[in-house]
Amino acid sequence: MGKTSKDKRDIYYRLAKEEGWRARSAFKLIQINEEYNIFDGVLRAVDLCAAPGSWSQVLTKKLRQNAENVEDVKIVAVDLQAMAALPGVIQIQGDITKLSTANEIIKEFEGKNADLVVCDGAPDVTGLHDIDEYVQSQLLLAALNITTHVLKKGGVFVAKIFRGKDVTLLYSQLKQFFEFVTVSKPRSSRNSSIEAFVICQNYQPPEGYEPTMVNPLLDHKYCDFNQFTGPNRFIVPFNACGDLSAYDSDTSYPLLLEGQTSYEYKEPVQGPINPPYKEILDKTKFSNKCWRNINA
């Protein structure tokens, strides 16, 4: 594939590189904010499953506008994987299903709760949709579980969700903890993609709810008000977000965008760190190198 074909195929991939974001997903958070103003008054935010760090980048930029003193802004990024450092972001390399991780976050906030928790985590997809959807829902529930430890009442939780066959089970679960639950698709997320985002506002845990990390939060079962098939399914309102005039992720744009006079190819801002296939790549690198030398 040519160097520029990715740039041509995906406008947001290209814009992300031009604007210095580590991933195109940065635009998704920006567009969610345009619709829901989730950053209003937020000083303390948690970015779960943060790597490669594009949402932390957005948080840093946006939250600093909320504070007179930059020191008041606290952003904690949590991920299992290592992430390249970001100025102004406290990093915790840990598992979001562990109580220790929740305590570490609270420690960073000096005992205070977070105003906003975001999670853009996605599992390693297998290609079997039901497993992928299940693992994604477990990731979201793990994020919700840790959120119940760190989020202030009235706070906001934003997470990636796969709108698969059992998504209504998650909706009904989220609705137990938040007054407003809507599902949203930023213009920068592709039409064909199963991914969407839940925006959960006004955190109000059920009365007597004690956050616990001992057992994982399991998802709901189908019931009378949320049938497996039928007229009574628990479906939350949907909103598209992002300006109507924003770029459309499905549209192919020329390399020279309207109003531009030149185009320059840019390398990605941050490459992957230690992927699982690294070993095999290293093993086969020799032959690739030889091939390249022959062709040089």
Binding site: G2, T4, S5, K8, R9, S252, Y253, P254, L255, L256, Y263, Y265
Partner: peptide
Amino acid sequence: WRNSSIDFDPET
């Protein structure tokens, strides 16, 4: 491919 210049048209 070595000599070809960048094609600005979008892939459609």
